[in-house]
Design a binder for these strands. Structure first.
Lengths: 216, 216
DNA sequence: GTCTATATGCAGATAGAC
DNA sequence: GTCTATCTGCATATAGAC
């Protein structure tokens, strides 16, 4: 039956996603994936010739889920505050629901950057130049104009990313390894970031209207 | 000769460090380590019973190099600007000299958080409570007091970390995969961050009547 | 499509000579 | 301490029956 085939294949991808995210390409075992999918290794190889082809299927799906957010939310019409809000909300939320994602993703793209490149090229609606130009136009004055707009993306992404990817360390050092406290810390962080970033923007907006900068 | 023994062992740790950082515990091969050290696998096992014991030796050394900076620079006497400057300069510089470090470190601490805990306990001069309290007293007003001071550490660390750990992705999307341009981006980032952070602090200092420089 | 059984290769680890 | 040669186990992958 066709229905059954599809179900099995999707079940495989689902559990493979889980196992690969936890262990990585090298650390994952086909046996474990087969077990969790309720099948055996032979059937696994029936659907996916090799471990790597299975990994690619998972990785491509993951990329499609996350990378497009980079550009989708950076339309020319958006205000800077909206872009930031949108970024922070999406990524903080995503990382909270996929705690293993950051360490998996960054480890794997370092292991095989060229594979990443292939997948990115498949994403037609990413326009890096547009993104950079849009940001450039909307930068608050304290991002001095001779610095690259990419710094700002790094700031926002980095502040979202850090407490998630550093959780095993950070939770132990600063939260007595208390899961619950850390979850609360992560939950309040979206609010904190939006409040803080809005605050900074306000400070600077007032400055512009009152006293013009000598730079321009 | 004792000198020879030490040399071999240190050579092993040196190249193991290199290989583990690039490939991770699971991805690394004892054969490659032996080759790069100019010895064979048997001798490798003579010095280190198992792959994991070799890994531990490397990992412990790495931890000793990086984690103490978390606390060493947060002495009660330091001003907030100095703490931030010190953090940004150290970590940005360290990541630039050890590009593979972030993806290695965060991947491995997720693979084995308990091992991390053991190593951290070996670091006697880490006093998380002191660190948090010291920061709390020095927070500028836009870090509203009902938010945890840990947010601020996450901000500074995250902004330092991101462009390094995300390099394979970021360089491709926003720098046309140009190594040289990206190196320049990273080089100017320390300056950028210090300028930006100082700018924010200044804005807010105007609103403060006097510095939170109580006790000690 | 799904299974049992098996092949193949390789990586970690050991034995033992020098 | 250092080597050559070898063992052992395991993980990926295939053969072939149902």
């Amino acid at each position: 039956m066709n229905a059954l085939k599809v179900e099995t294949k999707e079940k495989i991808i689902e559990v493979a996603h889980e196992v690969f995210l936890e262990k990585g390409l090298q650390g994952a075992r086909m046996q474990e994936i087969a077990d969790k999918a309720g099948i055996n290794k032979a059937l696994l190889h029936y659907y996916f010739r090799s471990k790597e082809s299975l990994f690619d299927a998972v990785f491509e799906k993951v990329i499609e889920e996350v990378i497009p957010e980079f550009s989708k939310k950076l339309q020319p019409s958006s205000k800077l505050e909206e872009v930031i809000r949108s970024f922070v909300e999406f990524y903080n939320n995503f990382f909270q629901e996929n705690p293993q994602f950051p360490q998996f993703f960054f480890h794997e793209i370092w292991q095989n950057p060229d594979k990443l490149a292939t997948f990115i090229k498949g994403q037609k609606n990413i326009k890096p130049d547009d993104i950079v130009n849009n940001i450039k136009k909307r930068l608050p004055p304290f991002y001095e104009s001779d610095y690259l707009p990419q710094h700002m993306i790094s700031n926002v992404m980095g502040m979202c990313l850090f407490p998630h990817i550093a959780r095993p360390l950070f939770q132990r050092i600063f939260f007595g390894n208390d899961e619950e406290k850390y979850d609360h810390f992560l939950s309040e962080r979206t609010d904190f970031l939006l409040t803080m970033l809005a605050g900074i923007e306000l400070e600077n907006k007032d400055q512009i209207t009152d006293e013009p900068e000598e730079d321009f």
